[in-house]
Design a binder for these strands. Sequence first.
DNA 1: CTGATTTTGACAACCGTTTTCATTTACGCG
DNA 2: CGCGTAAATGAAAACGGTTGTCAAAATCAG
Lengths: 135, 135
Amino acid sequence: MSNRRDAVHAILRQSEGFRSAQDVYAEMRAEGAKIGLTTVYRALQALADTGHVDVLRTDDGESVYRACASGDHHHHLVCRRCGRTVEVAGPAVERWAETIGSEHGFTEITHTLEIFGTCASCATAAKPLRTPSRA
Amino acid sequence: MSNRRDAVHAILRQSEGFRSAQDVYAEMRAEGAKIGLTTVYRALQALADTGHVDVLRTDDGESVYRACASGDHHHHLVCRRCGRTVEVAGPAVERWAETIGSEHGFTEITHTLEIFGTCASCATAAKPLRTPSRA
DNA sequence: CTGATTTTGACAACCGTTTTCATTTACGCG
DNA sequence: CGCGTAAATGAAAACGGTTGTCAAAATCAG
């Protein structure tokens, strides 16, 4: 029944970072899985709804998904080059957001926070900015 | 030349919160302005590029724009009901993000952070959750 | 086995955004 | 002032990710 959903979940578990729906779909097809794009979308939504995966939007409006270790509230430190992701927690930030909101009379406060950077591997591996092709 | 861009900027300045491109376009047309949707998009992009307006993505992937008072790095406390927005700064959070990134070997660290809530006016004004229509 | 129910996926519809391209407008110069 | 070139404009088409449609397939109950 939810065989496909599990399959989708599995792909996400194998991945180091966030993956797009189309991305997951492509990989599954490449592996020979018989699945439709529609079903991948549905599976991802279902997984997101049940909190089994985290979702976030890229700058160009694409939804990307990730199977996270922790079900608790946390944020992400994402390598903008390879997509590798580290889960981070910041209790102080949570409190800060809550406080700021209250101070301005806001209630039911939530927040979104993501940190982007270039991870160590990518920083050493690819430094095409120095010596571009200067013989 | 950049007459249209100024007009778009003006609309944004009049607004309390973030507005979508289509939204701005609709208002300008309603006011009788002769402008095309394409130009509104171009104007918004230009304004965003030059840092005159802030951009963020809504949950459903729409880009929304706002003319912000400060050109410095800051975040937003947004009312999820009426869209009213307060600019907030959190030096501690900036440092925290930077630190977290470094600790994990990441460089060129940036971050995104938005706080959402229900503002005081909206909280008192609309409480349709109680007595929905229970005669 | 048979009929009802759910899941699936090919395909079309959607929607915000971007591109294309012909037209218009603005500007510099003779 | 007139003309040519360059920039700006906008209608319409293209695009890309996502969602809806609906009939076929798989699953389940009796």
